[in-house]
């Protein structure tokens, strides 16, 4: 699937210039195998709609961007 990402430094570029860097989340340490941590490690939001994600502009400024993307489009 193809789309464009607006890099705030480089401009509008095809998605192939970027690496997908997972869903943006808070950085917490994981201490034990309780239900909350199980949920955080394995049970994913997988939104059918707006997702907040990190992307790395590998072919341009080599910076991480945080963006919102509609996974249905």
């Amino acid at each position: 699937m193809s789309f464009h990402i607006d890099c705030p430094h480089c401009g509008r570029r095809p998605v192939e210039e970027f690496f997908y860097g997972e869903v943006a989340s808070e950085n917490e340490s994981i201490a034990g195998a309780d239900a909350r941590n199980l949920d955080r490690v394995f049970m994913l939001d997988n939104p059918e709609g707006i997702a907040t994600e990190r992307w790395f502009h590998a072919y341009g400024c080599r910076r991480w961007l945080t963006l919102r993307r509609d996974t249905r489009k």
């Binding site: 699937m1 193809s2 789309f3 095809p14 998605v15 192939e16 690496f19 997908y20 997988n46 059918e48 997702a51 994600e53 993307r69 996974t71 249905r72 489009k73």
Partner: peptide, 14 residues
């Protein structure tokens, strides 16, 4: 698979 999650049925030239 495409790297990023998606529910879109669009295909790509890449």
């Amino acid at each position: 698979i495409d790297r990023q999650p998606s529910y879109s049925y669009r295909s790509s030239h890449d």
